[in-house]
Design a protein around this nucleic acid. Structure first.
Lengths: 121, 121
DNA sequence: TTTAATGCAAATACTTTGCAGGAAA
DNA sequence: TTTCCTGCAAAGTATTTGCATTAAA
């Protein structure tokens, strides 16, 4: 955990939700921190790898980040405004495991996302 | 509905699931069609506006498209050799629907992929 | 002729990488 | 020293736009 990562975590805490790398960089500069955009990207990437930060994509393809809530979860994403909700996935885990076992697959992982239009859109 | 849009719809029908603009363009070229990447993007954008095509983003930010309301299946993919098996997904559909309803989401879709190491690898 | 469609090339936006200088151990 | 950290500048990638050419009506 280096300086950049600490700075990025603290600004993510301050934001309390999703923000893009560019926004986080601007916020850091405005609060007097000295940090390059490159370091923000590198810190975010490392935090995502360590599962400390969640990464998602807006409709326009820009990545947005926030501090992780729980361990393994999935997302319900609004196609219109991009707002997300973490959802419970034990039924999905079981399904993925069952399907993989049925076909003799080992070291099983999965990827899932549910999308739609949220109530406020 | 112009020529490009018709070509894009037909290749999406052939694909039967999600594909990126770049993939669709390659597929069209390989099947002997003459079309520019620009036209593929323009056709997709127009089809998305008309709600004929669904647009999503992969984790890496690339946009993927599929025909709306199309019944689809899922794949079990081998991380090692890339071979795939079609798997049954009714449990997953139910889960996705339940999660979305619980949060008041409409026009629900989902994206899921299971991966692992296949028996022969 | 008037309008719409097409595609190349350039522009754009976000993100990643190469590399050299600097900090830390 | 040796290793890691930084950030500028350059490169990379997906997508969009300007513009001149072509097809269609």
């Amino acid at each position: 955990m280096n300086k950049s990562e600490i700075k990025v975590i603290s600004v993510l805490e301050r934001v309390g939700g999703f923000a893009s790398a560019q926004q986080l960089h601007q916020l850091l500069l405005r609060s007097g921190e000295s940090i390059g955009l490159t370091s923000v990207y590198r810190a975010l990437q490392s935090l995502v790898d360590d599962k400390i930060v969640d990464q998602l994509r807006k409709e326009d393809g820009e990545a947005i980040y926030r501090l992780c809530g729980e361990a393994h979860h999935h997302h319900l994403v609004c196609k219109s405004c991009g707002s997300t909700v973490e959802i419970e996935g034990s039924a999905l885990e079981k399904w993925a495991k069952a399907m993989a076992e049925e076909h003799g697959y080992r070291e099983v992982g999965h990827l899932a996302e549910v999308f739609g239009i949220c109530p406020s859109c």
